[in-house]
């Protein structure tokens, strides 16, 4: 398998404050990689750095192309979709408008229509609420909308920032089931940041453990999940 995303020596800054201290990360085509870690470890910052939303030093290579100097809109156009922290829904726009915006930079109307139909089959509730203002959706529905919007970009890499945040267990399980299906059937690679380590490790092929802006473990997900110390610290059993 070929490397889709390679991150080397990545540092990130908010003003004077350094949040990442030299992250190395590799993601293969078609794989799901997860980044685990406590609050404030730098998980969200890592995703934001890949999307070009924070000031960084170091190297980011996506599909063989250096991206660390590019703007977020250019990076999106290269095929990286980001479901951000807090979902980033356009609350005042309708569900249909949110989805159309996901495909903003595409120029293939037939493909866009086909993708819309497919995503509405994954998330039937979005089809039911097509004309509704997105702000009126429940948290779970908004998360589905955020994921669907990101997939409308037809990305090769999907960045997911805590898709389970604030949702009921049943809804979380449904969302992760669909993410797995999308990864298998559409071969969308994913980089997943999660608090819910158990779910994340079940979905992922490879896992990184982040502590205060540094990678401390990088292993196949199954191995990390089997580690007793990890289980105590992050899985709670």
């Amino acid at each position: 398998m070929a490397g889709l995303l390679e991150v080397a020596g990545l540092e990130a800054f908010y003003g004077q404050t350094q949040a990442l201290f030299g992250i190395d990360l590799e993601l293969e085509v078609g794989s799901v990689t997860t980044i685990l870690g406590a609050n404030g470890a730098g998980k969200t910052t890592t995703l934001r750095a890949i999307s070009g939303l924070v000031r960084t030093r170091g190297r980011i290579r996506f599909d063989g192309r250096r991206t660390e100097r590019l703007s977020p809109e250019t990076i999106a156009r290269l095929g990286i979709a980001h479901v951000p922290d807090g979902r980033g829904t356009f609350l005042r726009l309708s569900v249909a408008e949110n989805l159309r915006l996901g495909a903003y930079q595409r120029r293939d109307p037939a493909g866009i229509r086909a993708d819309l139909e497919r995503l509405e089959s994954y998330f039937p509730v979005l089809a039911e609420r097509r004309r509704q203002q997105a702000g009126t959706l429940s948290g779970g529905e908004q998360q589905m909308l955020a994921i669907a919007r990101a997939l409308m970009l037809r990305p090769r890499l999907l960045l997911l920032d805590e898709p389970s945040f604030g949702l009921a267990p049943l809804v979380i399980r449904e969302i992760f089931r669909i993410l797995g299906q999308i990864n298998r059937e559409d071969r969308v690679s994913m980089l997943l940041v999660e608090q819910n380590a158990e779910l994340a490790l079940a979905l992922a092929d490879r896992a990184y453990l982040l502590e205060t802006g540094r990678i401390v473990r990088a292993e196949p997900a199954a191995e990390l999940g089997a580690d007793a110390a990890i289980r105590r610290a992050y899985l709670g059993y």
């Binding site: 999307s51 939303l53 703007s71 977020p72 809109e73 999106a76 156009r77 979709a81 980001h82 951000p84 980033g88 829904t89 356009f90 609350l91 005042r92 726009l93 408008e97 159309r100 915006l101 996901g102 903003y104 930079q105 919007r149 970009l153």
Partner: peptide, 20 residues
């Protein structure tokens, strides 16, 4: 539509490729 999106949530707009 892109203008309305950029007005409401500039970060999300950039993440879908809109030049805000």
């Amino acid at each position: 539509l892109a203008m309305r999106a950029a007005a409401e949530n500039p970060t999300s707009a950039r993440l879908v490729g809109i030049r805000v």
